[in-house]
Amino acid sequence: MSGNDGRMLDRRMAIRLSAAAALVAGLFRTGTAWSETPAPDAPFATEIAPGVYAHKGHVALYNPGNEGDISNASFVVGRDSVAVIDTGGSARVGAHLHQAIRSVTQLPIRYVINTHMHPDHVFGNAAFEADQPAFVAHHKMARGLSARAERYIAVNKEAIGEEAFAGTKIVLPTLPVQETMKLDLGDREIVLEPQKTAHTDNDLIVRDSRTGTAFLGDLLFSEHVPTLDGSIVGWAAVLDTLSATPAQRVVPGHGPPSMAWPDAAKPIRHYIQILTDEIRVLLKDDRTLTDAVAVVGRSEKDAWQLFDDYHARNVSAAFAELEWE
């Protein structure tokens, strides 16, 4: 770099960083949030199995109408305590989840588990700090979230507005999971299984042994087009392994609160394969990233919501990975 660059970097860095928050005007691109809003008297979370409750977030981007309630969040009630799995995309959504728990049980909330680092799954953590739980996540989650924290906050505060975002902050894991481990809620075992890089480099699967319920986080998308922030090859491998592992039901990160396994994996596995296959063909012909973004995976357009928001980005990320094979 020339001296000029260094000088500009200093002069402009402060502007750049503070500007990040001010630059994003908001999210008005989909109407999905409104069309899918449940009836006002519907319970926040549904009991999908004995003692297992799941909330379906809107299939939408962060916008003022949904206050960041755009991902699924769940909790499991044991004899002695409660474990929460993902907390929604703002402290306000986390507070709704907290209320839902308190409408069911007064047992202490001992564990707040995040399935991965994305803001729509972790920003509700703040609503549980007063309970002093262990915040549990994949051992690489803290690093991933830390590196992105400033941007996640700036972007999403801007997207839903100051008021809805109030109280939201980064709450990093206090209990990092290196390898498969178990939590005990009192006569109820929760199994934590950290994964290799797939949707992100910090995906954690949570299982409730008593009911055979698996909380897959964003390893499983339904309705909402998948978003790739890890490895497309790794994701396919994790899904294949998972599909061979029985579960009574699964909770995806986005989509219905309870789904049948392994059938639920079929659409996303198909999407991943289409992208992988089509990109590999282009790479064989020495085609470029620009070519790939224009043509790959278009046949999947009608199969997913939010396709136009995420698909091209997925192709770009997958291409940058697969070109190194």
Partner: peptide, 15 residues
Amino acid sequence: AFAVAAGGWISANAA
């Protein structure tokens, strides 16, 4: 502007 939440991805016009 638009922001894409799940990945924290954004595109934004500069003020």
